[in-house]
Amino acid sequence: MTAGLTTTGASPTGTSAARLVAVELRRLWWRRLTKALLVLAVLFTGMTVYGTYQATSSANLEQQLRDYQQTSAQFPEMLRDCQRAQAEARQSGDADADLGCSEMTPPTPQDLGLESPQAGALTVSLSATNAALYAFLALVLGASFVGAEFSSGSLGTWLTFEPRRHRVAASKLVAAAAGGAAIAALGLALTVLGAWVVSQVNRPDPALQLPTATGPGDSVTQMLLRCLLVGVIAAVAGVALALLVRNTGAVVAIVLGYSIVVEGIIAQGLGRGGLVPWLPLKNLEAFIQRGTTYFTEQCTAEGCQSQQMTLSYTHGWVYLSVFMAALVAVALWLFRRRDVS
């Protein structure tokens, strides 16, 4: 071993932030998990596109058309039944009985999802669904990118080559963000392609005279950009959480546990739904969908009543910005201070 201790070529030129990011990007690409997550993004997208294909297939549309015609034919009788029941109730002493018959309207094709599939609308609908999947994959990517370093101990070796921890952490954040964007971009590109293919393949027979789906209420491009950004946010959150808890599995467990237990089960009970606007995933939903709704319980002396509230897009992105800034700041601070074993 001693014979080869020559110094040829050993001329370290120092570490720049850009070089560090480039190295981290290379490491990210070399990881098998990165490729596996890209494959999963493709598979997930394929599954959701296939689901849309089935839902908008000719056979399905014909069945929906039959359901529509049947419902339309039954509507006058349903209305008469309602009016008869209402009259009986009033005759039996309840003069104010109102069974809502006056609000009953004949069904429209749209009520039964009977629309001619349109690429833009399908893209928006699919993207909103798939964004959550891409976000989860990006989160796993970011968390494992750093978690693996802690579990293998290689972070200690890394820091003996570049001890500036903020720079090290920042390079990991940037690389993971790029990885999260790549996952989301691949998935969204396939979503756009899939939606277009479905709209072409499942173009219904003109004889059916189906109404054309109304165009998306949101710009398709803006929707795609927001979904792309969600992938970036999730990857950054994965890195930040991994810097905090130092374990990939723990990050995934925390996020899934929180999503299911806190936002899925007990969120509505927190302050009678009043705390929902301050939960991260609800704000993420508001960001993706340019606003969302939630329910609160308004209680008076006469009792409690459920009320639908709106969580605005602005609230969503401002909340997410502050939340992410705080999460990253705490992660960087702790990473700088903590011992690395």
Binding site: G9, A10, S11, T15
Partner: peptide
């Protein structure tokens, strides 16, 4: 104990570290 990325090859591990400090690639073979 030595600590590197277990899924990478020895050369890949060295290449990452060499790139961090900007050492010429020829040094890896050396």
């Amino acid at each position: 104990s030595p600590k590197f990325f277990p899924a990478f090859t020895g050369r890949q591990n060295l290449r990452l570290l060499a790139d961090v400090i900007g050492t010429q690639r020829v040094r890896i073979d050396e």
